[in-house]
Design a binder for these strands. Structure first.
Lengths: 207, 207
DNA sequence: TAGATTGTTAATCGATTAACAATC
DNA sequence: TAGATTGTTAATCGATTAACAATC
């Protein structure tokens, strides 16, 4: 099998399939067809079969794909079968929601540390973790092998929060704030933009 | 000017530019080049110039694009210059975070109603609104001209919450829960999947 | 003027889709 | 067997990129 680097599009779609398959498994379903998967993924069923068949014959004609098996294979392809550690910055309403959800847990991500600037919050427990002061970021990132930082802080605090994470060696930043972040080369910033996606949905609704 | 329907890709990118430009304006900056915009949007600068020049000559050579002017023009192209009303379902940590953020407000979206199943929360005020019981959804959606429903409820409640919105005439559902939702034709479901996007970022980090 | 950046072209590459034989 | 769905082909279309003249 060719060990080529996936294109951006293929990697994005495979990640999406994986996330849907994980939910499908939770619901107790054991097989899924490219047609059903396409409805949840908003991707053409032929495209899905094409994406998968580039790596092997994973399906059964007349039946579909085995959910468990497909999850295993896609994790192999994406090299994301392991456990990956996250630091969460900010434990207001949004941070608390993220810490208590299992959206990350389901995919092998573990929130290993929580930080907040507010002295009233430091020392409190949230989702099984004790809230720490941001001054402890460098030490904690190194000790706990943290590779992803999630920013759930106000826009005004986002830039300095990102900076401490990056300076401590974190290479993937997930930005839930509205702030635009500048990243040095080698650092990936992924900003959530629900408003942008809503504008997009609205365009097709209005026209 | 051709009034053709935009392709999915162009509409998605223009929405993204608009969201970034709105933040840029907030920061006080008045012009932006395709290069700078490309860094925030993760889109090639030539692609950006191409997307924009399809609708007119919006920029100044040697200078860049006027932020205010570009915002106006993109809103025209996307037909999203007006005010659009949202219903928020669920006012736990996530719902409260959404209601108190201005991520939607900045783009002309207004949260017009908040619903929750929990009797303890009904009647409480959140972000200037009074929490209502879901039985009031149909009447409220019609009265307040609500076209978007945002689901900030547990996965177990997402399906029935989506159903009441759809039955009341809402055609765009923004799903922050992990649940997979089935939508009838004509209804757009947009599911947030931070874990999927994280898997994607991780692939390029690991390989 | 000199430097910067747009608008546009041309060439390439990946995405998309319909169609259908293979086969469970 | 009959129905369903995969794997694969072929053809088209949009995305992507480098390059550069135009011009602020």
């Amino acid at each position: 099998m060719a060990e080529k680097r996936l294109t951006l599009g293929v990697a994005a779609r495979l990640s999406r399939y994986l996330q849907i398959l994980t939910q499908t498994r939770k619901s107790g379903r054991s097989t899924i067809s490219s047609r059903v998967l396409s409805e949840y993924a908003n991707v053409n069923p032929t495209q899905i079969r094409r994406d998968l068949s580039a790596f092997g014959k994973f399906g059964k004609r007349g039946v579909g794909y085995d959910v468990d098996y497909l999850i295993t294979r896609i994790k192999d392809i994406l090299h994301t079968a392991g456990q990956h550690n996250i630091a969460l910055l900010g434990c207001g309403n949004l941070g608390t929601a993220i810490a208590s959800s299992d959206v990350f847990v389901d995919h092998g991500f573990r929130i290993e540390a929580v930080f907040d600037l507010d002295p009233a919050r430091i020392g409190q427990r949230i989702g099984g973790l004790t809230v720490q002061h941001p001054s402890e970021i460098p030490e904690t990132v190194a000790e706990r092998d943290i590779i992803v930082g999630v920013l759930a802080v106000p826009a005004s605090a986002a830039s300095s929060a990102a900076k401490s994470l990056i300076d401590s060696g974190v290479r993937i930043i997930f930005n839930y704030s509205e702030a635009l972040l500048d990243a040095p080369p080698g650092v990936t910033v992924h900003s959530m933009s629900p408003a942008g996606e809503l504008l997009y949905a609205l365009y097709f609704y209005l026209s």
